[in-house]
Design a protein around this nucleic acid. Structure first.
Length: 361
RNA sequence: GGCGCGUUGGUCAAGGGGUUAAGACGCCUCCCUUUCACGGAGGAAUCACGGGUUCGAUUCCCGUACGCGCUACCA
């Protein structure tokens, strides 16, 4: 971490409004990069073509601009590691997936959605309500592990759709050091054979994040805690493809919770507290969700609020300028516990805080 | 169900093997006197529960409970 230039990335998928948690992830990325003289990259993760939402990408950049968290590299800012939109990198991923198959770490799977559904129904019990495509069932499915070579060859050269799945090893322990949580480990037997390359030729997040982090020379990879369960897949992919020693340092941020779990835009409407950075109007439904900007928050106040949602500098200070944050930020001072509901926090904020942070224009 | 992460006062939240366990909001008492987020002085907490390690645990380990997350050809 000392010999490598710090390069971090925020990788949103352009599917709708930019959530509070997303902006906080951006902020921590930004602070970390600036503190260490590194680069902050924004990479658009648009590999799911069924979820494409027109305008969402531009909207994300507008939010970052308003918040004052401009990337050094992105589709809009240029850079030497492009393209910065994964849909435009489609051709890159296939070779890595094939390489994994060739080396025995992955396999071709021909199961149709109906067959997958059938498998889940068949193995579903009270004890196991969510059966996975894993080592226990993969030998019962239609894939290059169970089919003979000729059949596989034939299927692949007809127009039969297929995916590439990772072959999770049996009973190995995968562990890594999270900058916030310390050592985290998993047994590979309980992780399923995630799809790496989809039938349409697009990678899933799992493959794309590893390939792109490598190609873009990302040194530290930060994301929300919801990714922790699939981290072993990513660690294994790094090991198979590029070497575990090249893997970025991970940090998984605690989720920002609403009154009933994961904060949703519905909570925002219900409690009169914004969830998105800026107004977002869904192009399909025309539904408008209010943002912090339109609610009257100053960007500095918004950023400050987010900064202390999970981080503190060890003193009693709770009002920071962006320069102070850059100066004082450190990942090991990010709390591992989810900050209790932002709605409550708003009520528990200090008087001076209320005056300065939340003040309307 | 499985796996993972988490759990400090009414609320938000520092700290983290030996402390009087910060601070803020709220609450109570008082001062100022004034209110509609005014100012000031005080008051109230054995850190979810049960074991273990240790001279000593709120801090480390295990279990339980509870909360949250993941368990898609979504990210």
């Amino acid at each position: 971490m000392s010999d490598k230039k710090v390069r971090v990335r925020f990788a949103p998928s352009p599917t709708g409004g930019l959530h509070l948690g997303g902006v906080r992830t951006v902020l921590y990325n930004y602070l970390f990069a600036k503190k260490h003289g590194g680069d902050f990259i924004v990479r658009i993760e648009d590999t799911d073509q069924t979820r494409f939402v027109p305008g969402a990408e531009d909207y994300i950049f507008e939010c970052l601009k308003w918040a004052g968290l401009e990337p050094d590299e992105s589709v809009q800012h240029g850079g030497n590691y492009g393209p910065y939109r994964q849909s435009e990198r489609k051709e890159l991923y296939r070779n890595y997936a094939d390489q994994l198959v060739a080396e025995g770490h992955a396999y071709y799977a021909f199961d149709t959605p109906e067959e997958l559904d059938q498998m889940r129904q068949q193995y579903k019990t009270d004890e196991n309500p969510a059966p996975q495509y894993d080592q226990k069932v993969r030998m019962q499915m239609r894939n290059s592990l169970t089919l003979d070579g000729d059949t596989v060859h034939e299927l692949m050269h007809s127009d039969t759709p297929y995916v590439i799945r990772i072959k999770m090893p049996e009973n190995e322990t995968v562990s890594f050091n999270d900058m916030i949580r310390g050592e985290v480990s998993f047994n590979t037997s309980v992780v399923d054979d995630k799809v790496l390359l989809k039938a349409d030729g697009m990678p899933t997040y799992h493959l794309a994040v590893v390939v792109d982090d490598h190609l873009m020379e990302i040194s530290h990879a930060f994301r929300g805690e919801e990714w922790l369960p699939s981290a072993p897949v990513h660690v294994l992919l790094w090991k198979y493809l590029f070497g575990e020693d090249k893997m970025p340092q991970w940090a998984h941020f605690p989720l920002i919770l609403g009154p009933n779990g994961k904060l949703s835009k519905r909570d925002g409407a219900k409690y009169g507290f914004p969830v998105f950075a800026m107004n977002w109007k869904d192009p399909k439904s025309d539904e408008l969700t209010e943002g912090f900007k339109e609610k009257g928050f100053l960007p500095e106040a918004f950023i400050n609020l987010l900064a202390v949602l999970g981080w503190n500098d060890g003193t009693e200070q709770e009002l920071f300028s962006i320069e102070e944050m850059i100066d004082k930020f450190s990942m090991d001072r990010v709390h591992s516990a989810a900050p209790n509901s932002i709605m409550k926090k708003r009520n528990g904020s200090t008087r001076s805080g209320s005056k300065n942070w939340m003040h309307r224009l």
